[in-house]
Computed example of a mutant assay.
Amino acid sequence: MTRKYQKTDALSEALDSKNLEKVLEFISEDCVLIAGNGEAVRGKENIGKVFEGFFPAVKSTKHDVTDIFESGESLVHRGMVTYTRLDDSQLTIPFCDVFKMKDDLIREYYIYIDWSELFN
């Protein structure tokens, strides 16, 4: 079965390379981002600021997307992400990203992850 939103497969690569410009290519101007139990962030520019703040807080990330599900305008990426902290220690945890799509862009971006150990 051909997937409708194959373009989003490159999102993890853009995140792992900390390429903000590339990440924002996937996001609609009116996108809403909710990460973990955080507040909703509205608009592409504000979402860019969230990633700008997060990228320097970790040395690197490596996403391993193990499952991708599509249903209508909804898309789910599930897998494991390994964070390398600034002190070179690592943490690998599961994540699940849920996207609501519109015109091949993410208009709702939900990140389900437990970051409680990341900065301890």
Rank of each mutant, 00 (worst) to 15 (best):
T2G: 02
T2I: 13
R3I: 14
K4E: 11
Y5S: 08
Q6N: 15
T8K: 01
S12Y: 05
D16Y: 07
K18Y: 04
K22V: 08
V23G: 00
E25L: 10
E25R: 11
F26S: 00
F26E: 04
C31I: 03
A35F: 12
A35L: 07
A35Q: 10
G36K: 14
N37I: 13
V41S: 00
K44P: 00
K44L: 02
E45A: 10
E45S: 06
E45Y: 03
N46S: 12
N46G: 01
K49I: 09
K49H: 08
K49D: 00
V50R: 05
V50M: 09
F51C: 01
E52P: 04
F54S: 08
V58S: 01
T61L: 10
T61Y: 00
K62Q: 13
H63K: 11
D64V: 12
D64M: 11
T66L: 11
T66Q: 13
F69V: 15
E70M: 09
E70C: 08
G72A: 05
L75I: 09
H77Q: 11
H77P: 03
G79S: 06
M80D: 12
Y83F: 15
T84H: 05
R85H: 11
R85L: 13
D88R: 09
S89D: 14
Q90L: 06
T92C: 02
I93N: 04
C96W: 03
C96H: 01
C96F: 04
V98P: 01
K102I: 03
R107E: 14
E108W: 04
Y109N: 04
Y109T: 02
Y109K: 00
Y109D: 06
Y110R: 14
Y112I: 15
Y112E: 05
Y112K: 04
I113A: 12
I113N: 08
D114A: 07
S116R: 14
L118E: 01
